[in-house]
């Protein structure tokens, strides 16, 4: 057996999401929020569209780094959570590769992207595809899926980089296709930095 995404997603999808008595949602070693995707998309879209040429790189790098760090720390919290241990780990038969598959199932369950690994050379490169992801609605005229690409790099950091918390940025995710750019699906290539 290997990790079956759809089974994991349905087991992990948290339909009883709501803040505690303090209005906070602690979980996976982080504080979680649950917001309309339009907030994150509008911010990204307006920021990119507002940036003059000399600021564009700073904006794009900033958006990538925010998503990368989020994916690294939250990803670590996810794969070490009780939920992950009880739902995903019993299906893990192929080591780090299966842990990665499980991480993508959680990525999907959180509403980030209906995604999965289509190709992997362990410790070296990976191709991930998504047929639906919330960033596909960003309108900048180009590929703008920072969460999808940066979190993919961060998950690979966790699987094959130096031990947490020293592995951040070992790998990077390059978005090669995007629904928001007119492609049929989103695709990210993860490779060594």
């Amino acid at each position: 057996m290997t990790v079956m995404r759809d089974k994991v997603v349905k087991a992990l999808v948290e339909l009883n999401i709501r803040g505690d008595e303090n209005g906070l949602m602690p979980g996976y070693n982080v504080l979680v929020n649950f917001l309309p995707t339009t907030f994150w998309n509008l911010f990204t879209e307006r920021l990119i569209n507002a940036a003059p040429a000399d600021k564009k790189e700073e904006v794009l790098t900033g958006l990538y780094k925010a998503a990368q760090e989020c994916g690294y720390h939250t990803g670590y919290g996810i794969i070490n959570s009780d939920e992950f241990k009880s739902v995903v780990m019993p299906m893990v038969t192929e080591g780090a590769k299966d842990v990665l598959r499980g991480a993508y199932a959680v990525f999907t369950a959180w509403g980030w992207a209906k995604s999965g690994i289509v190709q992997i050379k362990e410790g070296e490169r990976m191709v991930v595809r998504a047929t639906d992801y919330y960033e596909q609605h960003i309108k900048t005229g180009g590929k703008s899926s920072f969460m999808f690409s940066a979190v993919s790099g961060a998950f690979f950091d966790l699987a094959y980089g130096p031990e947490y918390p020293n592995g951040l940025g070992t790998f990077i995710g390059d978005q090669t296709k995007g629904i928001e750019a007119g492609d049929e699906f989103g695709e990210v290539l993860v490779r060594k930095k």
């Binding site: 982080v30 504080l31 649950f34 917001l35 995707t37 989020c70 509403g111």
Partner: peptide
Amino acid sequence: QDMVMHCHHYMSL
């Protein structure tokens, strides 16, 4: 509305 979970790292960054 489409909804998504995110963490404090992302909000802070």
